[in-house]
Every structure is written in C-alpha cells, then in structure tokens.
C-alpha cells in the first residue's frame, strides 16, 4: 500500500485517452505499471484511496453498458473521486441536444474527467475538442476501446509474464469491433504476433495493413496460438445477412475444445464480454478455470481503469 501517499510525478504524452493509436510505448508501460499497483489494492479490505479526492468524474454513456460503466464507476470511487453517471435515456440528448451542447453543459460544471461511450466512431475525439478536462474513451462506435485493450494486455502479462513473442488469435466480428482494433494496435506495439480470424463478411478492408495475419479458417488461424481472444457476436448480424445462422457460425467460428486443440496446449481463452454461450464459445470452455481468464479480465479491468483515471486526471 505504498502507493497512496507518495506519488511519483507522472508523465503521459497525451491529454486524453482517446485510443491506443495515440499512445507511445512508454505511455502504455506507465499505465500498466500503475495498474499493477492497484491489483493488490482491489483485493485488500480497504479499497478506498484519496488519490482523486475532490475531483469530479462524469460517466457519459450513450450506449448501454454493464461492465465498462460499473468498472469505471467503481474505479473512480475507489480513487476517491466524485463520480456522476449520466443516464442518457433521461437526458437532453433524447430531446435533441447535440453531443457538443451536452459537452458544453457538462464542461460548465468543471469536471476533471469525462468518460464517454458513444455509438459513433470519433465521438470521443469530438468531445475532447470541446471540453477543458481530460476525456477517456470507453468505446466509440467501432473505432477504439483503449481501456479494454489495456486490461487485456495486463491480463496476458499477469498470466504469461510477457507479451512480446506471443501469438495471439483474435476471432469473431472484427468488422464491427472496437475491441479488436484497440487490441491490434496494442498487441502489435508490445511485440505480439496477431492473427485475425473472421468470416470475410466480418473482416474489415485492408486489415492486413495493420500488420496482422488474416484468416477465414479458424483452425489455421488458431495454430500455435498462446492466447485465443473471442469477440462477441451481435445478434443483428444475422438479420442483416452478414451470416446465415447462429448454428453455422458456431460450427465454423465458435470456440470448441476441438478447435482449441489447434492452439498451444497452455493457451488461454479471453473474451471482453458479455458472452453468447453456444454461439461464439462453448459454455464449458468459458467456465474452464484452467483455460479461461474471462473473470480475471473483469477484475483487472477495474485496476486498469483506476490507473487511467489517475494518470489522465490533471
């Protein structure tokens, strides 16, 4: 618990956390080191600190979210900040107020941090141009979800002690996934080899130019992977003809013990949640404590978000 009193000066190259794209490798290391310190704290009896006492954090969630929102809320509270979560369904947004006007209104209340989730790519960038405080992106459209990638990286490091040299397979709806994009940037930066696995209908254009290998055959893509990262498949993908059916998707892209055999024997399974059991992942695999680190991801998520809030709060 040496972290609460004496704080080393922190240097981060960015004012806002909008995406992994903007971060340097030393930024990432700084965040991960800071997060590691909070892992212990979160397991201890007294989880409250006063690092952000007197600071105000506003959570602005335009899209429903259970774990990310509660994770950010808890992270802020454990750091001692005053946390306000805006319920968008009741807010002026529904009455036609634009994002910028909402931002100006909130800005007038002098927050120190705004955490935003929005269905449109680039929404956090737009917000950051209009407010004085730091903006933390909790997911914008299909562009980035930086804290998810950071917590994934931390989970891998905790288990595998490194990321460099690992082969990591990311499988599922890459096209619509901000988690995939942030992870690709981060894992590449940290020296992993990234395999992207998706049906061509859910594969973004030119993704190979991000320095990844792409596969539409899951077995080939999983070959010798150290980490298998599964993504959530949105139900509406079926109705819009990206795919034919859940059962066919499960047959070809669902993670089953049979397909997992292609990965290394000590491969770990990750999932950003919420899971569709029986669609993208076999239910027993998801719960297999020897292979699945899905619960650990949630746990470390709070630590990573605490680190981000602390570092990006002026």
């Amino acid at each position: 618990m040496a972290i609460t009193k004496k704080l080393k000066p922190i240097k981060i190259s960015q004012k806002h956390l909008l995406g992994i794209q903007d971060l340097s490798i030393s930024d990432v290391k700084l965040i991960l080191q800071e997060a590691k310190k909070f892992i212990k704290l979160n397991k201890s009896r007294n989880k409250k600190t006063n690092i952000l006492r007197g600071k105000t954090q506003i959570n602005l969630f335009f899209e429903p979210s259970t774990r990310t929102q509660s994770s950010f809320e808890l992270a802020g509270k454990r750091l001692g900040a005053d946390v306000m979560s805006m319920n968008i369904t009741n807010s002026a947004i529904k009455k036609g107020e634009t994002l910028i006007d909402t931002a100006m209104t909130l800005n007038a209340m002098h927050p120190d941090l705004i955490v935003i989730r929005h269905q449109d790519s680039g929404a956090s960038n737009l917000l950051s141009q209009k407010v004085n405080c730091s903006v933390i992106n909790a997911g914008d459209g299909r562009r980035e979800h930086p804290t998810q990638a950071l917590l994934d990286a931390l989970t891998i490091i905790e288990r595998k002690k490194k990321i460099e040299g690992l082969r990591i397979g990311i499988c599922g709806d890459i096209l619509h996934s901000r988690v995939a994009r942030s992870n690709i940037y981060l894992l590449n930066m940290l020296g992993a080899e990234v395999n992207i696995i998706a049906p061509t209908n859910l594969m973004p254009e030119n993704i190979e130019r991000f320095g990844v290998n792409k596969f539409s055959d899951m077995k080939k893509g999983l070959k010798d992977c150290d980490i298998v990262m599964m993504l959530r498949l949105q139900n509406e993908r079926m109705s819009s003809s990206f795919l034919s059916s859940n059962r066919e998707y499960y047959e070809y892209y669902g993670l089953t013990p049979d397909k997992l055999n292609y990965a290394k024997s000590d491969a770990l399974i990750m999932h950003p949640g919420p899971m569709n059991r029986g669609i993208e992942i076999d239910t027993n695999l998801a719960d297999d404590i020897n292979k699945s680190v899905i619960k650990e991801q949630v746990e470390l998520g709070v630590a990573v978000r605490m680190a981000c809030l602390k570092i990006f709060c002026k």
Binding site: G122, R143, N206, R209, F210
Partner: peptide, 13 residues
C-alpha cells in the same frame, strides 16, 4: 471510402 481509412476510423465504408 471502403479501405484502410474506413477500417482505421471505424466508419462504414
């Protein structure tokens, strides 16, 4: 345009 920029910005191409 559908391509590297749409993928990078996360915008429908």
């Amino acid at each position: 345009n559908d391509g590297i920029i749409s993928t990078k910005l996360g915008l429908q191409g």
